[in-house]
Structures are given as structure tokens and as C-alpha cells.
Write a protein that binds this DNA or RNA. Structure first.
Length: 291
DNA sequence: AAAACGTGGCT
DNA sequence: TAGCCAAGTTT
């Protein structure tokens, strides 16, 4: 059982969102920036930051010329700030090793920091119109339902997931790229995780899950991510202080964000190790490259 | 392979 | 309200 590509792509043409990184005039660099920002982050929160970034840093070399701290500050509250650091590093590599042009080859993209199996293929497909299996959480869910008749995707397995999607990808570059964008969009708008809108689904007739009576997902439960009180929480609080402050701050400014000294110090240390924070010669703390 | 890694909106 | 969820990558 497969997916009717024409039906899906037709639906995408009418129901797909007009996102700026999908417009014909968007550069490969714009696509790459969007893909990094969209990792684990909703479109609505990415939209304004993406626009700021592309206006401020229209090419990789422009971003590479900024300091890490500037980039982290511009990242704001998008979350997972190591993405910003890695994108900055990728921009430097692209500027210096690839003539300021985002690579179009999957393996070359994979060699860049912060670019994994999904992002490399997303850039190849969406920025360069290449045929490559683009597998994100939306695609995994749609394929699990429409093709396999399961309520949801099981635990990810890059090799198997790529093969699954490769098998249903249209033959030509152009058609495959369009198909991938449409598949993702269907997962984002219709075949959603919580309450799928099957009544609006263009694939309903051929959907294995629908045909099977929409059985509930039976696989292993996804591990719940705690946040309150975790190191991630504390690191976020620490970084927020540095983001909102002009220059270096004394440790006392950081100490007030969390009462447990042990956890607080451990988190500050991990931020230093990760390169998200730097210590000045006089012992104060700052975003990297900003003193 | 499992766990760490931010943040905020929605149900 | 507490938990679920959002275009993943790295170690």
C-alpha cells in the first residue's frame, strides 16, 4: 500500500501554507536557517526570528562575521541554543570551504555541525529540488498511518525510516521534493499527533489506518520529558540572564536564579563546557565572544 | 541506544 | 493542571 502522490500534491497546492522559506525567491541559506530553527520548535515561533535573521545575515559569511554572543542573543527564546552555536559554526564552514554557498550534496551537508539525517535531506530537497527521503516526525507519523495502518510511528530508526520513505518517493527530483513537502504539511495540518482531522484528509480513501478502523497505537510509550527543576530548566534561566544583560555579569547575578547551589554550579559549568558561556579574566560570566 | 538538550502553547 | 507536543542532533 502506498500514497497517491498526485492527490497529496494537489492538496498541498491548495491547502499548504505560504511560508517564507517555501517561496521561490528564498535562498538555500534561508532554507537551511529555517530547518535548524524548526527543529523541535513550532512554526509560529520561528517565523519572526527567521525574518530577522535573514535580513541581518543574508549570507553565511555575514553570520560568520558575527560573534557567537550576538547570534545567541538573536536566537532569543527559541530554545536549544546550541543550535544557534552550531549554525554559526556551519555558516563559517560554508563561507570558508564552500564559497559561501550552502552545499546541495547530502553527504557534504551531513558533515556540517548541527545538520543530521533530516536536515541534510530537507535542504537537498527543499533548497535544491533534489530527490531525497525527508523524514521528520510528521512524515514518520503519516507513513505509519497511511501506509502501515498503525496509530502512530514506533521508535525512530534512521535506516528503516529512510528506506520506508525512499520506497514511496516519486521518481523524479522535482516530484519527490514536492511530495516530501506535501507529506510533511499533511502531518502538520491534518494527520496530527493528537486529534487527526481525517475528515479533511486527501488520502482518506487509501489510508491503511482508516481502513483498519483506526486502531490505537500499541507500541512503546514515548518517554515523557520533564522540564521543571531539571538542569535544562536551570541552564535556561542562567542563559536568560546573560542574554538580557549588556556585558559580563558577576556570579552573584547568576546565583539568584536558582536556590540549589550544587545544581546551579553544575549547570553553569556545563554551559561553559558547551561553549554557551565564557568566563572573563576577572571571573565574571558572559555570552561567548562578547567581552 | 538511550538520554540530554529549551521553551511555550494547547488540551 | 499536568502532560503532551513542536520540521532533531549529538554523545
Amino acid at each position: 500500500m502506498s500514497i497517491d502522490a498526485d492527490t497529496l500534491v494537489d492538496w498541498f497546492g491548495t491547502a499548504g501554507r505560504d511560508l517564507p522559506w517555501r517561496r521561490p525567491d528564498c535562498t538555500p541559506w534561508g532554507v537551511l536557517v529555517s530547518e535548524i530553527m524548526l527543529q523541535q520548535t513550532p512554526v509560529a515561533r520561528v517565523l519572526p526570528i527567521w525574518a530577522e535573521w535573514l535580513a541581518r545575515w543574508p549570507r553565511p559569511s555575514a553570520m560568520a562575521a558575527a560573534s557567537q554572543g550576538e547570534v545567541l542573543r538573536a536566537w532569543g527564546r527559541l530554545g536549544y541554543p546550541r543550535r544557534a552555536l552550531r549554525l554559526h559554526a556551519a555558516a563559517g564552514a560554508i563561507a570558508e570551504q564552500h564559497g559561501d554557498q550552502v552545499p546541495s550534496d547530502v553527504d557534504t551537508l551531513l558533515a556540517l555541525p548541527g545538520i543530521g539525517a533530516y536536515t541534510a535531506r530537507a535542504v537537498a530537497a527543499f533548497a535544491y529540488g533534489k530527490r531525497a527521503p525527508v523524514v521528520d516526525t510528521n512524515v514518520r507519523r503519516v507513513v505509519a498511518r497511511a501506509v502501515h495502518g498503525a496509530g502512530d510511528a514506533g521508535p525512530p530508526s534512521t535506516t528503516r525510516d529512510l528506506a520506508d520513505v525512499e520506497a514511496i518517493l516519486p521518481d523524479t527530483d522535482r516530484a519527490a521534493a514536492r511530495f516530501s513537502a506535501a507529506l510533511m504539511e499533511l502531518g502538520a495540518l491534518v494527520c496530527t499527533a493528537r486529534s487527526p482531522r481525517c475528515a479533511d484528509c486527501p488520502l482518506l480513501d487509501g489510508c491503511a489506518w482508516h481502513r483498519a478502523g483506526k486502531p490505537a497505537y500499541t507500541g512503546p510509550a514515548k518517554p515523557v520529558q520533564k522540564y521543571a527543576g531539571t538542569d535544562r530548566h536551570v541552564r535556561g534561566l542562567l542563559l536568560a540572564v546573560l542574554r538580557e544583560t549588556e556585558g559580563p555579569v558577576p556570579k552573584s547575578r547568576l546565583d539568584v536564579v536558582w536556590s540549589q547551589a550544587g545544581q546551579r554550579d553544575r549547570c553553569l559549568d556545563s554551559l561553559l563546557v558547551d561553549g554557551l558561556v565564557e568566563q572573563t579574566a576577572d571571573g565574571r560570566f558572559a555570552l561567548p565572544g562578547e567581552h
